Simulated scan of single mutants.
Amino acid sequence: MRVVAAMSGGVDSAVAAARMLEAGHEVVGVHLALSRSAATLRESARGCCTIEDAGDARRVADRLGIPFYVWDMAQRFAQDVVEDFVAEYAAGRTPNPCLRCNEKIKFAALLDKALALGFDAVATGHYAQIREVPDPSASGGLRRELHRAVDGAKDQSYVLGVLDTDQLARSFFPLGDTTKPDIRAEAAAQGFSVAKKPDSHDICFIADGDTRGWLARRLGEQPGDVVDTDGQVLGEHGGAFGYTVGQRRGLGLKVPPADGSKRYVVGTDTATNTVVVGPQELLGVDHIVGDHARWCGSAPEGVIEVGAQVRAHGQEHPATAWPEGEQVHVALQERIRGVAPGQSVVLYDGTRVVGSATIVRADRAVPAWS
C-alpha cells in the first residue's frame, strides 16, 4: 500500500512513519507547512511547524531512506483553522482548533491530495486505534472503527472524533497500542535525533500560550463590564471574547462576594460585550445540544447509551444521545459543569468513538439575566 506519513518533526510522527515502513508499505514522508512566516526556531514546547521542525522531519526521513516533501497548506490552515478560531471566539464560543485541523487539514486537505496523487492512505502519529470488525455489509466484509489508545494519558481519540467512515478507511494510527515512554525508547533505538524532543501542546499557533492576548491583538481591546446575574457591575474586562464558561481566574473583580464564595464565568454576551459571573452551581448542565454532527460510521437510530466527553483530556460522562435532524441531543445522567458553546462533545461506546458534534447549547438552571 502507498502511504503518506504526515511528519510534523516530532517523535510520534517519526515512529509512526518507521512503523508503516516496517509493516511493508511504500511510505513517503510529508511535512505540512502551515505558516507562511514559520519561525526559525521553536519558541516553546507549545510551538510547532517551525523551520526547525521541518528539518527534524527531513532528517528522520533520510534515516529511514524514504522520499520527503513539504506541502504548503498555510493558506488553507489560516482560513479553516486560524480564522475560524478567531471568528468563534468573537461570537462568544469556545472552539477546539485541533478538531478543526484534523477535520479540515490532516484528514481533508492532506488525505484528499494524497488520494489525488495516487496514494492509498495517510498515517499520522496520533494516539488512537483503528480496529477492523466483521461486517457483511461493508466492503471486504470488514468495518473499521476508531477506538481510544492504550495510553490513556496520551489518548487523542477525542480530537479525531470528526472523522467519517470514508476517512477512517484511508487512515492509519500506528502508535495506538503503545505508551509514550515506549515510543521514545523506540525512537532512540532507531537513532532518531527527535527521541527526546519535547511534545508540542495546544494551541500550536499560539506559541506562548496566551490565548487572550493573542485574540486581543487580532480583535483589538474591547473594554466592557463584568456583571453578576442581577446585572450589578463587579469589574471591567478587555473583551468578552477572552472569557469562557467555567473560567475562574483572571476575572479582575473589584467587588468581593458578600458570602466569600468563588465566582465563575457563567455566560458571555458579545452583543453587549458583557461577561456574566455567578456561583459554581450555575455552571451545572444536564442536557447538551450539538450541531455539525460527524459520525464514525452510520448515524445512530433512536436513543443510544453513550459516554460523553466535552474536553480533550476530560472525563467521560454516562449519557444517552439521539440525533434530531441536523442536531444531536445528549442527556447526561449526572450534572456536569463548565460546558461552553463551541466546544465539541465526542460520544463513545466503550472505547469506540461513535461520533462528535459542536455544542450550540447547554441547558441548566436559567439565571434571571437571560
Rank of each mutant, 00 (worst) to 15 (best):
C48S: 15
G9A: 06
Q129W: 02
P174T: 04
A123D: 02
S344C: 11
E145S: 02
T272M: 12
R2H: 09
E326I: 09
F107C: 05
E326H: 11
D151V: 00
A331Q: 08
L234K: 10
D166C: 14
G302M: 07
A258C: 03
E43T: 14
L34N: 03
Q167M: 14
G209H: 06
L111P: 09
V27A: 09
Q222Y: 02
T272D: 11
L219M: 07
C204E: 02
K113V: 05
A108F: 05
V82K: 13
R218Q: 12
S193N: 03
V275Q: 13
G141P: 08
H147I: 00
P181A: 06
L110D: 00
G355Q: 07
P257D: 10
E22F: 06
G267D: 13
F119T: 05
E236D: 12
H126T: 02
V360S: 14
Y127L: 10
R217I: 00
A54E: 12
V266H: 09
T320R: 08
W214I: 00
A109L: 12
V266A: 08
A45Y: 05
R63I: 04
E221T: 11
R93N: 02
Y348C: 07
V360R: 15
D259P: 07
E103N: 10
R248Y: 03
V245S: 06
A216M: 11
G325H: 05
G307E: 11
G224L: 11
E301D: 09
Q190V: 02
I288W: 00
I336K: 10
G140S: 02
P367S: 11
R100P: 07
T40N: 10
E186L: 15
Y264T: 00
A91S: 13
A116P: 05
A128C: 07
H201T: 13
G176T: 01
G302P: 01
C48Q: 11
A109P: 12
S157N: 05
